[in-house]
Amino acid sequence: MNPAIEVVGLSYRYPDGTVALDGVDFSIERGSSVALLGPNGAGKSTLLLHLNGLLRGEGIVRILGREMEEATLPWVRRQVGLVFQDPDDQLFMPSLEEDVAFGPRNLGLSEREVEVNVSWALKVVGLTGMAGRCPHHLSFGQKKRAALATVLSMRPEVLILDEPTSNLDPRSKGEVISLIGELKRRGTTILTAIHDVNIVPAIADQVLLLDRKVVEFGPTREVLVKRGLLKGLGLDVPAIADLFISLKDGGQYPGEIPFTRDEALSALAQIVDR
């Protein structure tokens, strides 16, 4: 076993008394992609802030086998890239290029390496021609991708994304989804807090259901069919799966629950053939 992220008994209470995390335990294998699902206020963002030491609660957090403590923080922040929900919070330099170079320069890379990482990160997110632009003047979709580039340029082993598709139009959502797929193929461990359950099957092998503590953690296809559990948390089952769960409950469909359009088409063909 070689976990990228290991969390043991993590609890956190905000200064105003709100208990945001209450004994969270889980561990994520290297190279896997996990979706973090939970209703508003479930503590998703709070949990993510713990994973690179921006918040310190009670309990243990281990990154790539090393325990997080004061002395390991700089190392941890080099391994774990955290992309926040609001891109305007992360694009604070006067030009996109300087923003993307901010992390690598803090790591003390040589200007040559900084240049290589910056142009690579901008290429991955499809913003190569925009390097000199003021981040403020980018479109919202471009800002979201730019924020991702500012973290990718540090080449983190572990990538943590907080709502990367929120407020995006369908095309930009599609771009983010294929980007996550691309990074996963490169072996990056990815944890994504996400609202839109319909996207989860496309980006994650596993689902972590959170409601101040871990409610469920398992393979995407096993967790996302638990309609009662999801509804109880105020979450939806993906639209396609929802339909076929009803068909299965009604005895019209015996097979595996489909999650993608293609799977649904062949499942429909089975039903028609019967």
Binding site: L49, N52, L54, F84, D89, F92, G103, N106, L107, V151
Partner: peptide
């Protein structure tokens, strides 16, 4: 939030 974003990218007081 901006400060958090900076710290998470290794900011230690000096702008590169």
């Amino acid at each position: 939030r901006i400060y958090r974003a900076m710290v998470s990218k290794g900011y230690g007081g000096d702008l590169p």
